[in-house]
Amino acid sequence: MLMAPDQVVRVDELSRHFGDKIAVDRVSFDIARSEVFGFLGPNGAGKTTTIKMLTTLLPSTSGRATVLGHDLKTEGRKIRAQIGVVQQQDSFDQGLNVETSMDLYGLIWNVPKAERRRRIDELIGHFEMQEFRKMPTVDLSAGQRRRLQVAREFIHDMDLLFLDEPTVGLDPIVRRSVLDYLKERVRQGLTIFFTTHILEEAEYLCNRIAVINQGRIVQIDTPENLKRRFGSAKAVEFKLLQGTSSEMASALSSSASVSRFGRDEGSGAYRVTTTRPESVIPEIYRLADRLNLTVSSIYISETTLEDAFINLVTEDEKAVANGGRAS
């Protein structure tokens, strides 16, 4: 399988079955160098199984992949020597404290002692672990242990990092600092394969996102394009200085660009649901002008990646239920 020079991962029709159950179904994608590739999907969609295959922990049932130029089936050890993995589940050495645990992890990766010491100090600072650097790992809170797990992975060199829901249990401030650290490492040349359920962080970090559902990739695109293409209809809310206008209501209700029209009795605001706010907003102003009305306020609610994600997954599940999913 040929890879472009800047391609780090190339996956072609990769599948994994567990008996009759298809956990991952012919997924294909590629990841470029210094890219953060997001992998989003509901629980049980096949995200972790895909990571386990790409990190050589699980053999694939069919399909091919190359990771960092090495064949997944025949060059597992070469792949493992160049990657880092932060698993979804906890992983820690229970008999050690934070610092020793990081040191021992560096040792098994053959990082020289002086370099280990330097990196441990740096990582403890970056991940704000000074308070508990001497604490036994068994006594750490879930969030502290998670921080250790992410920090520990940076003790060794790697070209590609797999992060399987790395920020679970972290408070927003620490989460943001972890994401910023990851961004910094990406700027230095690291490539990241990233799964999360927190869509804001996927949007913050990822260059491209693959949405996976029931083992199949439903869509791959940039976060912006996913929002644009699959975001739900937007809500345009506006108020008239004059309060109400039956003519305005009638005109907007019959507009082709408007999918729903209503009025909030409490706030007195009209609410227009549309997939084309860029047409609807000028239309509101044109109507107001024609009807001698004044628009006192108008705003549009932003489409989120979560909207796009929910739409994509819901549509895919409908297609699966109707047997209409493309094979």
Partner: peptide, 12 residues
Amino acid sequence: NGMFEQLLMGPF
């Protein structure tokens, strides 16, 4: 403690 899988994804 999850170290079994972690080590198997290492260079061993």
